[in-house]
Write a protein that binds this DNA or RNA. Structure first.
Lengths: 222, 222
DNA sequence: TTGGCTAAGTGATTTAGTCAGTTTGTGAGT
DNA sequence: ACTCACAAACTGACTAAATCACTTAGCCAA
């Protein structure tokens, strides 16, 4: 089964982006322009662009243009069409994080890189901004993975945590533990800064265990 | 900015699939049927379906129909539009796996579940089938994660390893270590079966370290 | 300088149709 | 009764030519 025209088109458009050295935020040629260039019609171009949109490779801005998306260089992604959250899936998520995050924290402690530590600090302080604040607040757990120096680990954690944002408000409404979170985050940062991998790992495990207990003790949510 | 018609449409189609209890492989209504049902036109429906196709939520079969895809219930995905492989990205991948997989193996050892162990055994033996064999061969490392009992860990590993298939042939051509792999896989399985988490973790780390050394000592590839 | 208007460019969607595969059932031939 | 060939009927793939909606930039007047 030969790849469809739409498939080849997505590859061609990605080629335009990559060979052109375009980065997230840059504009790509308009749909009409692409249609003319490939000698096809606009609906076909739009199908290809929609596929790229689904994976965050491009973004549409009505009336303005089409732009390179933030996750075009990602290797793994959070499924934008993932199933709705259930209590079970939340606990599964925390279990998975309990396996992965402590060793990632340990890795960050040994691979300490000054510039990433700064971002980690910022994430800790951002955590105390009131809800409704800027949406681009750094996420502590994602930055903790970023401090490992391996962008893949950051992607994995970011993808896993994107699931959470849907229900973040619900959980916070049930159990607002932001102050406690903040203290525990700060302790982890100190361990990472001290390059104490064992302590960073233990503190992260305890931190996530606390979160799990909070969720387990919370009543049902939709 | 209100969600576009296309966005709402993808959600509606997902609703049809989920409320209808459809599972991967099942057929969904034809594009014309969906267009009629939502009182819109087929190009619009196709855009929405293409978005779902990009994430593996649906699959097209020309002349036959549209079907529910294999990854519709995934939380994380391998980016189908990921950037081309480089030597650096391969080493990054192995580094990330070196962080994650050993603890996952340890988790599988403690969470031992008989039925998953059977699949793990099958994956080990499948590894020796000659190249060109069935494409649906179980992957040892994915099944090792599946044995942890947490489907999220399986998804993460499967997504990370999907990157590898593109270059798998290249690596194998440069350094065919299937027999050695097989021995090491078998040793890991035995540790898991014995519920020896510490040994499973150590063996997995050593195994990945060997792979890393093989890649590092290999000459450049495109 | 500021404000509002306008025109060009862009995405969003429609309408109507053709082409190209797949599936299924029917009927002729055995 | 069985089998094979073939013809609908259904499906996705794509085209063609518009119109609507939104954004941006420029211009002009207050």
């Amino acid at each position: 089964m030969p790849p469809s025209l739409s498939d080849r088109l997505t590859e061609s458009i990605l080629g335009i982006i990559r060979e052109g050295g375009l980065r997230p935020g840059d504009a790509i040629p308009s749909a009409r322009e692409l249609a003319k260039r490939f000698a096809i019609t606009t609906p076909t171009v739009r199908e290809a662009l929609r596929k790229l949109e689904a994976t965050g490779a491009v973004e549409f801005r009505h009336g303005s243009g089409t732009y390179v998306g933030p996750t075009i260089n990602n290797v793994v992604l959070a499924n934008p069409h993932r199933p709705p959250i259930t209590r079970e899936s939340v606990l599964q998520l925390i279990s998975a994080r309990l396996v992965i995050e402590p060793v990632v924290a340990a890795q960050s402690a040994v691979a300490r890189q000054p510039e990433n530590l700064d971002r980690l600090e910022a994430a800790v302080t951002n955590a105390l901004v009131p809800p409704g604040g800027p949406a681009f607040a750094l996420n502590f757990h994602v930055e903790l993975a970023a401090a490992s120096g391996n962008p893949l680990l950051q992607e994995v954690l970011a993808s896993l945590l994107k699931v959470r944002v849907r229900e973040q408000q619900q959980i916070r409404a049930l159990y607002d533990n932001r102050e406690r979170d903040h203290e525990e985050h700060q302790a982890i940062v100190e361990a990472v800064r001290a390059q104490d991998a064992v302590r960073a790992e233990r503190l992260t495990r305890e931190h996530l265990d606390n979160i799990r207990q909070a969720v387990e003790s919370a009543p049902e949510f939709s």
